[in-house]
Design a protein around this nucleic acid. Structure first.
Lengths: 136, 136
DNA sequence: GAGCATGTGAGAACTGTTGTCGACTGCGAG
DNA sequence: CTCGCAGTCGACAACAGTTCTCACATGCTC
């Protein structure tokens, strides 16, 4: 049975206030800073439960860290600023169709896909950080 | 200066024999098993150097492990069977354009993207493993 | 309220990866 | 070929993120 504990509720609530992606560690730190007593293990467990429930979306950063976000139910992708971490949701029905079609052509079924776009947002770009050119 | 060492050559050679994605640890284990004396750090360094050179492509598994594959130079994406791990390279110029356009519309510059398609390949599907449907 | 399965949390353990540093060696110069 | 040296190696430690452990606490059912 799944219980409705204070901690679980609290973690859920954190994502109501937060926009963009945040790591479990960050959520933990934030809660502790806010005076909420909670263990790191519990945050991990809560977050994973929420992902299982479909309440959160998770992706992995390039550094291998898992980050989470409350997501709207419909399928979409993310446009992430690699400087400030700002996230925008984007939709691309054409991409969905393309992915399904390509997978189908190769005989694949049960198809899902992940698509994340990384870039430097206008604010960060004009803030003057010239980034190395990214190949490919 | 970049030197042409036995180890570096050996790591490179491993990817000639291997298809699909493989982790640094796996490459290391494989080389040791084959009687090749090489350190794990060296494998990591070699693999990263190869990625920098554009000789290998790297993505991250859901478990956060980095896996590598010899890739053709041009930009493409992967269609991965989640049952047997078989990988196909696919290209989608339209997707590239879409990603660039969407990013541009949001004021992002210096745009890169990652796109992986996961599914069950025909062979694995007919082998009868009915998988749970994956919500978007 | 009683009973108990489930959740909690501090810390240890584990995993993949990167850093350290003395020894080694490929490669160009002579 | 030998020399010199800077890039490289590799065993190991360090690190970060995540998961496991286990005694204790607590939500839920009756």
């Amino acid at each position: 049975m799944i219980r409705n504990t204070r901690q679980r509720t609290a973690v859920n609530a954190v994502f109501d206030e937060l926009e963009g992606f945040h790591s479990a560690q960050e959520v933990h730190a934030r809660m502790r800073a806010a005076g909420d007593s909670i263990g790191l293990s519990t945050v991990y467990r809560a977050v994973q439960a929420l992902v299982d429930d479909g309440e959160l979306d998770s992706i992995r950063t390039d550094a291998g860290e898992a980050i989470y976000r409350r997501c709207s139910a419909r399928h979409h992708h993310h446009l992430v600023c690699r400087a400030c971490g700002r996230t925008e949701e984007v939709e691309g029905p054409a991409v969905e169709r393309w992915a399904d079609r390509v997978a189908g052509e190769h005989g694949f079924v049960d198809v899902t896909h992940t698509l994340e776009i990384f870039g430097t947002c206008a604010a960060c770009h004009s803030a003057g950080a010239p980034s190395a050119d990214q190949p490919g």
